[in-house]
Design a protein around this nucleic acid. Structure first.
Lengths: 181, 181
DNA sequence: TTAAAGTTTCAGTAATTTCTGAAAATAATA
DNA sequence: TATTATTTTCAGAAATTACTGAAACTTTAA
């Protein structure tokens, strides 16, 4: 894997953004490298290209596999493991959305559900609970919706996105049709 | 601000989740506290309730204001500043989406745009650039779409979300109508 | 003005996270 | 089974991030 300036810039940027996206610098760099590489890379190649320790690569690959963003590959007659970024950019985006939902929303939803079971002890708690309920309902809608969007084919999703604000019009149209019955 | 066990649990959970949501523990706690409080709180009240330093509160409030998630309030005859979480849960969600997009997507889009201007120097770079292009286009679609969704009224957004996977059917319907012309 | 009330800043410290590298574990071949 | 290739683990070091608290600054009102 030859690190040209262009690839290096991309890799470094992903490293810097890594923390905002939920993983650390080297994990971000590793992922970027795998995305732009036209062939699978071994852990040693990654360590060398990024100039980081072999141990760190091992941990990072484990994390990326946890996100289900990289695949492991074997070649007959070669003992080494090779790694590759997941198929299409769409697949990647799906994974990132899904995993982030799991990490960022699900635990909160579960806490909110529990807290909403308690009887409010006073006015302050009653108010607090009303906000918790709003938050809970919104997060639940978002979760359900994102699950349903994921079930849509990439083509439909693309149509929907291209539709943009035109979605408002389509909704109106749908209302009319439904009301006619 | 009385910290009942229920409120405390919520606040602590938000603190723990904070880092996943893009801010640190105490900022998360401060925000949670403001969300469930039925009246605006002064910086001192916040520091006391959360048992953190006054300086930290000042920095945290600045950051929350940067996210445009809290509002400052003045009361005549009182020198202190009071703080309040933003209006509705919808407003909050919008802000979070918008700010995260700014922090997590925009910088990457800009880097990708730049890198795509370079002529690929070899086959590896040509491949890399093709992936960069895919990624760029997807991020751009997501950005445009999210901007357009934000322009939709909360009611319409709600309709859209409730529609769920039914959105597929609506899209088919739209296709038919458009093709008839 | 001046004093009092309040806020912000920031150097230093504490806490947390990330990274390394050597040792242990695992897997493949001879 | 022994040997070699490879991966994983994890204790400690390094780097980063968060927090405190005292000093500097700002604002208000007497």
């Amino acid at each position: 894997m030859q690190m040209t300036p262009m690839i290096e810039s991309f890799v470094m940027h992903f490293g810097e953004m890594g923390s905002r996206w939920g993983f650390n610098r080297t994990v971000g760099q590793m992922y970027a490298l795998l995305v732009v590489s036209d062939e699978p890379l071994s852990a040693n190649q990654i360590a060398e290209a990024l100039n980081i320790s072999r141990g760190n690569v091992s941990m990072g690959l484990k994390e990326l596999q946890g996100w289900r963003l990289v695949q492991q590959q074997h070649f007959p007659g070669d003992r080494k493991d090779y790694f590759q970024a997941l198929g299409s950019i769409w697949d990647m985006a799906q994974r990132v959305f899904e995993e982030r939902r799991k990490r960022e929303i699900d635990p909160t939803l579960s806490v909110l559900r529990d807290l909403l079971l308690d009887k409010p002890a006073n006015a302050q708690e009653a108010y607090a609970q009303s906000r918790l309920k709003e938050m809970h309902d919104l997060l639940e809608s978002i979760t359900t919706w994102s699950e349903e969007l994921q079930r849509l084919s990439p083509e439909k999703l693309n149509t929907l996105m291209k539709l943009g604000s035109g979605v408002g019009k389509v909704l109106d149209m749908k209302d009319k049709l439904v009301n006619k019955r």
